[in-house]
Design a protein around this nucleic acid. Sequence first.
DNA 1: GATGAATGAGCTTTCATTCAT
DNA 2: CATGAATGAAAGCTCATTCAT
Lengths: 203, 203, 203, 203
Amino acid sequence: MQIKKDEMEKRLLSAAREEFLVNGFQGASIRGIVKSADTTIGNFYNYFDSKEAIFSDLVADIYNGFSYVLAHHNDIAGSDMDNVDIYNIDILVLRPMIRNEIQKVISILDNSFLLLIEKSKGTKYENSKQELIDMMSEHFLMHIEEVNQNYASPDIGKVLAHQLIEGAINILKVYKKPEEKLDMLTELMIYTIAGMVGMLKGE
Amino acid sequence: MQIKKDEMEKRLLSAAREEFLVNGFQGASIRGIVKSADTTIGNFYNYFDSKEAIFSDLVADIYNGFSYVLAHHNDIAGSDMDNVDIYNIDILVLRPMIRNEIQKVISILDNSFLLLIEKSKGTKYENSKQELIDMMSEHFLMHIEEVNQNYASPDIGKVLAHQLIEGAINILKVYKKPEEKLDMLTELMIYTIAGMVGMLKGE
Amino acid sequence: MQIKKDEMEKRLLSAAREEFLVNGFQGASIRGIVKSADTTIGNFYNYFDSKEAIFSDLVADIYNGFSYVLAHHNDIAGSDMDNVDIYNIDILVLRPMIRNEIQKVISILDNSFLLLIEKSKGTKYENSKQELIDMMSEHFLMHIEEVNQNYASPDIGKVLAHQLIEGAINILKVYKKPEEKLDMLTELMIYTIAGMVGMLKGE
Amino acid sequence: MQIKKDEMEKRLLSAAREEFLVNGFQGASIRGIVKSADTTIGNFYNYFDSKEAIFSDLVADIYNGFSYVLAHHNDIAGSDMDNVDIYNIDILVLRPMIRNEIQKVISILDNSFLLLIEKSKGTKYENSKQELIDMMSEHFLMHIEEVNQNYASPDIGKVLAHQLIEGAINILKVYKKPEEKLDMLTELMIYTIAGMVGMLKGE
DNA sequence: GATGAATGAGCTTTCATTCAT
DNA sequence: CATGAATGAAAGCTCATTCAT
């Protein structure tokens, strides 16, 4: 039974995404993927060169987009939030602004993002999480210095970046409805900002 | 060349800890462990009954201690912090109190803790992280209700618990000096409390 | 060099049958089987799920047939022998009747039968021999009671059933030509019946 | 804890006998033996050179005795039965004579005999059963020729010898009380003789 | 396009045996 | 006498990948 090329490719990609999400790259098996996609091992290799290749096809777009941001995040046109004095703003004013910012990027925070960040051990993408954290750390550090140049533990920026990523990942895993995701991510950001401000004030 | 029993056991445990930390339980291989420990596969099985058995030997103590806390965390004698009104306290006052609390438990937050929480997939311990998060969630939820009974997203407690664990894990991975660990964990707690208070106030 | 699927399957089954006959289930090795079949271990598992699975493929048919007889041996349409008074019959008359009965079942008394009865230790079939003996014991006991209700050692039925099975197995091992098998099995039955009659008379 | 040499040797022999009876020579493990004997692997090799050596120690005596009979069974002083005309004797007369003969040899038909005949696969003794059968075959053939020189299937002697051995082995396995063993073996011999006579007459 | 046969290296585990202590 | 550490080969089984059909 021959099937349109695109159709089988989609089925394989979909089956692989599921397998990688559940078992991670190393724990996933080609046999499991082709069984889910209802085809054969041999046919898998007509579509993809290797286990890593199909993983790449699942995450390459998001990785590239995210690399682009990594490389250019200083030049990218700013948002309304750039001029906000986070240190003194009322949270009731801040919340809708944050919600709005998250809206802009939420579309990329899907299962492929999870794969890239959480399930890529054993692939060339395995450092993505760290790269993302490093970028956010810089950003956090910038804010910390703006507010309190003498804060004793500037390294905490790295920890908080890591933690924010983890919180976001957790939300993406648990909440699948877009509205819920948006709500939770917004609260997470509020919490993060409030936490940082509180922490910095307290010195 | 024969070696004193205790020494080889230590070498194997140490090699296994490293292998499990890097690759996780399922990704670790006995061959890798015995190579690090400079012995043979056959000899490994003179010391440990199975791959899972050596993993257990690495985490059983901490798991039991931590199970004890899970089971009794309501009866355990309280600390100075029990009577603190977190909502209104000055962070400059709070910080040393938190530091003190962390001191009490920091000794168990070592590599074995990481193994138990992060690297135990495929063993009988694989639910430890979730159990810990669930316990902390309850605790957070209690505080949220104390402060703001009408908060719209009580589920955020789970997210924050998850995130706090992740933050702590990250600190344990990155900072190996006790003093640094203590500093960072203290800041993380301050940040967490400030974040929660800020988040709750902002409604 | 690829080979038609059926052929390799046959080669593996044939090699396995030989290996199991010589070494028994537990003593047989997959490596030995694939070497005989001139293929690789990996390929073995393209054909069979496990060592026990290939053993099952060799004996399942005969086991099911034989289970059917075990379950229905009371309902199965009788033979000419049902009305024979074994106790008084002339052996010259009996011999061709027995020969005829054996003809009916001889086709299943092949190497697969030997595997099932003699070489299945370690598989789910390991009780087959005992089941067969038990069934025959009942049958023998029935005859013993018909002839001599006061015979002092009715347990001898179990011993004789066991022994008859062993004798038959031995014949199947040693004599491969159908005509010889038939001759020997016939004599074995004559001997068995004569032995029982003689034994019972002698009380 | 040092123990008298003989004591430990006995314990090892006893543990090994049990292990071999249950699992056969190949299936038995030294680890299992030393565990039962409550000593260590190393110590095992202070007493026995190898797995086969301890097996030999368990069966050598009986094998040698039985080889002696094999070699000399024509010269050995006869019994009352030598002059019996089996062909015409009354079973009621025969039974006590047989019982008496069995009495003479029953002491060697113990667990060591079972080991030698049934559990020796993988050792140099693995042909013992066949040797015993061959010797008995000759004996049977002699009787067959005495009685009926034209019997069509003289090979049946081998089958019956095999079967008699199997029957005896079975009795030794099932019946542990000496009196029961004697009873059953006597009936088995009666049955065997009656069977042979009946079989031979019927031509 | 599709099939699955074939390969070879990897896995965890068990074993008999040797030998330093 | 006794211990058990150490070895190396073998077991059943899984895997990603290649390739003839």
